[in-house]
């Protein structure tokens, strides 16, 4: 089953490789991994989308907690949560395709953030599934380039991940 694991860790050189090394050494899946500093610059927050049985996810959280630089670990799937991913996508938008492309972007609530003679660059956020659906709807030939961030997530309501 798919899980989203959020990690607070010391914002130090090498911390990321300890986490990614753990996943490769123990054969755990990584679907996506994002990391950036938090409002407290000494801490980074990492979001890992992974999959595995309950036992495997339990081991993953235990092994992560064992890393010395990891401060806190939470499996967002334990409670209601929100996940979002950002995609920047460059599409073919010549005179012929321009209107269609604009409409498609509006339907998916994308924003066109760069325009050239033959291209649009669209910014789109949502769940991974929504981004997949947009790519599907555009069709391969229309797409020139995509850059996706991988999912980031946060719990709903009063649950917070902080120290």
């Amino acid at each position: 089953m798919r899980h989203i694991i959020s990690i607070l860790l010391e914002n130090e050189a090498g911390a990321l490789s300890r986490v990614s090394g753990l996943f490769s050494a123990r054969g755990y899946n990584i679907e996506s991994l994002t990391v950036a500093p938090t409002e407290d610059a000494s801490l980074s927050r990492m979001t890992i989308v992974t999959s595995g049985s309950g036992d495997v996810i339990e081991q993953i959280t235990k092994q992560l907690n064992k890393l010395v630089e990891v401060v806190k670990v939470v499996d967002l799937f334990e409670a209601p949560h929100i996940e979002r991913e950002l995609m920047l996508i460059k599409v073919r938008a010549g005179a012929k395709e321009r209107d269609d492309m604009k409409r498609m972007s509006d339907i998916f609530r994308g924003r066109i953030i760069d325009v050239s003679e033959d291209t649009f660059t669209i910014e789109l956020t949502g769940t991974g599934q929504k981004l997949d659906a947009f790519i599907e709807a555009l069709g391969r030939t229309a797409i020139l380039e995509t850059a996706r961030t991988g999912a980031s997530g946060i719990s709903r309501g009063q649950r917070v991940l902080r120290i």
Binding site: D55, E58, Q59, K62, Q63, N65, K66
Partner: peptide
């Protein structure tokens, strides 16, 4: 002392 040793191979 190590939680990750518990329920690793045997529940």
């Amino acid at each position: 002392i190590d939680p990750s040793s518990i329920s690793k191979r045997v529940k």
